[in-house]
């Protein structure tokens, strides 16, 4: 059984067709890059998988089941925006995750925050945007999930932070779990990808193993992506 399967997904917003016949199969133990320019349906697809939207037609299955309580328990999702109650302190956010997610590893989160020199008594609204993003990443990666869905984890951060984020992802994702990284910033992440999926204008246009693609095209994924989308 696939960890995640999308079958003939269509999604319309009023008259606008945002996703067209998207078919996807994600297996266990892979790091997948879902690559596409902004506004090509990437975030819509993420929201569908996370039950934040419902497809116009088609079916999404996580471990063979539709999105619901069970799927949410095994998916750790990092959205692009900050989704924590900013009135909370860091320790409140940790407690919140601990209360709602059975697979949340509190000690791991505390340790990672310590590495960042972040005081857990800090109010989230008092933290910089970058710090808030790191906190969110730590909370998400401290879950022993089966599928990590990361939406633009490198968006708008400086190179040092990029390294930190990539390291955190790589060192903390659970063994045997899969990671899907949705992004348009490919150069920095491509070395950790097993598979790449290109999405364009709401359709999946290419699915391949990263190394095979490099071999075939004799170029980096970033280069291939640029060529493909001529940007």
């Amino acid at each position: 059984m696939e960890l995640l399967e999308c079958k003939n997904i269509y999604k319309n917003f009023d008259d606008k067709e945002v996703l067209k016949d998207v078919n996807l199969k994600i297996q266990k133990g892979k790091i997948i890059g879902l690559l596409g320019k902004n506004g090509t349906g990437k975030s819509t697809l993420i929201k569908l998988i996370n039950d934040l939207l419902t497809p116009t037609s088609g079916e999404i299955l996580i471990n063979g089941k539709k999105p619901g309580v069970e799927s949410k328990d095994i998916i750790a999702y990092l959205p692009e925006r900050t989704y924590l109650d900013k009135e909370m302190k860091v320790k409140d956010a940790i407690l919140y995750f601990e209360e709602f997610y059975t697979n949340f590893d509190k000690n791991k989160a505390v340790k990672l925050l310590k590495d960042l020199d972040l005081d857990i008594n800090t109010k989230i609204s008092k933290m910089s945007k970058g710090m808030q993003e790191k906190l969110q990443l730590i909370l998400v990666m401290s879950r022993n999930a089966q599928l990590y869905i990361l939406d633009e984890p490198l968006g708008g951060v400086d190179p040092a932070t990029r390294d930190y984020i990539l390291d955190t992802i790589l060192t903390n994702f659970c063994e045997g779990a899969s990671v899907i990284i949705f992004t348009h910033l490919i150069a920095d992440i491509e070395r950790i990808l097993d598979e790449v999926i290109f999405i364009d204008k709401g359709e999946i246009v290419l699915t391949s193993s990263a190394d095979e693609l490099r071999n075939k095209e004799n170029a980096s994924i970033d280069e291939i992506f640029r060529r493909y989308f001529k940007c």
Partner: peptide, 13 residues
Amino acid sequence: KDESYLTHTLPVK
């Protein structure tokens, strides 16, 4: 709003 990204991804009915 923003917080809904957390609310609706909690393993809660």
